[in-house]
Design a protein around this nucleic acid. Structure first.
Lengths: 206, 206, 206, 206
DNA sequence: GATGAATGAGGTTTCATTCAT
DNA sequence: GATGAATGAAACCTCATTCAT
């Protein structure tokens, strides 16, 4: 669980030639969890979509919960990376928020299946894992909140906003993307990213 | 399913007089669905929280799915009513959006359990019922989209926004409220409503 | 359970003014058992057909099984009476068989609901009661078998028939009546009785 | 449901090779349905008789009702085949009836468990399946009725019999066989078949 | 690696029966 | 006499998981 890098999807296990099927299983699982919910998705559903029998899945996964965790965890790590990258002192807080919103949106459109699981099926995770996910979410939210505060200090962001509420509002908006938008000709990642980050920064301006 | 009024919760069964247990069951169910998800909530959980045995629940519900539907349907009807009420020619489109956002937010904070089920467990509903819910959501979204277009026509709302994307963004934000906010001394319905409707209208301004 | 007379239906309990409803319950139960089977008939079904709620039935019955037993037991006693009445030394064995077959047929057409339960839902009865029913059936069969043997002795009945098999065959035929025939203008008890007793005696002739 | 042949029992599933347990399940189910009735037989009963746990049965069956249907359907198909085979222009109608009765009887004695379910637990089947079974029974009855009519035309069968009633009477007799007779040293299929077909043709003769 | 068989725990639902009102 | 509420046992069925082959 510690050897995956954020930039590969699905998270790698051993480097075997079964990697292609391995990827297929994780992608299909993410889609099914998105479509039917984690609890309502059976391993039989998953197995038959990837052309295996139920029992054979256990060559690729440890458990159903572990499958969910790996998917969630991947999104998780990606968001951490995003935040890390935009911490760039050269930019203003509002610019950072714009950059975060754009990266978040783009990722959500491109990976809407896996993003979808991020906030919806936490209940199925073990208490430990759930706590881990919550910690990341809180850190993410805290980062945005701090940027808002900083922006208020600099007069870039309206004074009358409550930083906590505003941060949650913006992230709530960004986290709804994968519910409604998916890749299509009109709905390019860039178009969506542009629109949502615009909404975010305008909402904050004095 | 057609005789409930929006203003009573939980939806009343015709023949039942002031049935406290009936109300308790629906409220507890809404809370449990919120906390653990619909699939992960068992009727045993529900029964023991309301002080009954599993079998006894069936005096009050038809099925687990029906229980979910009644909860979702109630939110459903409330949102329709909200939209109906703000159709007030005297106001400008932006004012209407503000009014919708405020009413939506206030309801979400006051009824976060039942609102929570609205967008999260649709998958568990029968195809028919799911379609019914989707239709309402689409109508709601359409209303907001039209107001945005109208506001753009009047120059009240920024021209460079895509009305569809913007409408979804705002509603996505509003629908995230119950995930993060619940009633407390600092988190009054009014405070949240004020903040979120402010974010909404500011996000749209030219 | 011992105070009922064969000639009244339904079996009487206390002589109260609720007797009409009492009768209705037993008749309706017999019909439902016939239509859906004993196990598949619920007391809710029965209650709603007689215009009561489930709990109220218990003013009229002791238990569901008891209800079945009373119905079966009544048929039971009737057949015993039939056999007793035709034991008339003046007649020949074949005439007695004719008389039994005619009485049996007529009863089956007139009371097809209650007759139907006789042979079909024995499994639901307690071991004791099941044994009691079997004993009567065996006595009934023995009577017919003996008449066949006697008829063979007198040359009235074909020698090459096995009395046991033949008796079972005839009774099997008679017991199938209520499965296929019910009262109608063409299907009068007399017409059916005539036909079936004719088949019985002809089947036996040398 | 369409690939089974009449000559194999239990109905084979396409992919299964010589599966002894599969056969055992169907045979045991037929016996239990015969002994206790369909509704009163639980899958726990069945599972423990075949040495499995309840859940494991579902590798072999789709549902309890499906299990019943397959058993009933098999008898069903057998009777159709019997009727088809005796359609032999060379024989007289009475000979055909004799042949049908003999084949029916022999099958009933040899397969009394599965035959037993044929006419007793129809109520448990879905409306569609029940209708299918009734259609076959009616066709079977119609065949016998027509043979009786034809025989009357030729003077082989008594004129005063009603073909419908007589056909039902004979089939009622044949369908009672498995209630009372099962394989034993004295009760060979041939002895029973001989006796019952004799009763049938004698009952009809002028 | 793949599978069919088996499991066992647990889920929703039904229903005969009891009882206070 | 009638009922609504409650019960608890048991029913059918599902499914994640294990394992021998």
């Amino acid at each position: 669980m510690t050897d995956e890098t954020v930039s590969t999807w699905p998270p790698r296990r051993a480097r075997t030639k079964g990697d292609k099927r391995y990827a297929l299983i994780y992608e299909t699982a993410a889609r099914l969890f998105h479509e039917k919910g984690y609890e309502a998705t059976t391993l039989d559903d998953l197995a038959s979509e990837v052309g295996l029998r139920k029992g054979s899945l256990y060559h690729y996964i440890d458990s159903k919960e572990d499958l969910l965790f790996r998917i969630v965890d991947h999104t998780h790590r990606f968001f951490l990376e995003v935040v890390a990258q935009v911490v760039d002192a050269a930019r203003s807080p509002l610019d950072e928020i714009f950059a975060i919103a754009a990266a978040h949106s783009r990722f959500a459109v491109e990976n809407f299946y896996i993003t979808s699981a991020f906030y919806s099926d936490r209940a199925a995770l073990s208490a430990d894992r759930r706590r881990a996910i919550s910690r990341t979410r809180d850190a993410y939210e805290a980062k945005v909140r701090d940027l808002i505060r900083e922006g208020q200090g600099r007069g870039e962001i309206a004074d009358d906003l409550d930083p906590t509420l505003a941060a949650r509002g913006l992230l709530g908006m960004l986290n709804s993307i994968q519910q409604r938008h998916r890749l299509s000709k009109e709905m390019t990642p860039d178009a969506v990213a542009e629109e949502y980050s615009r909404l975010c920064v305008r909402a904050l301006r004095p």
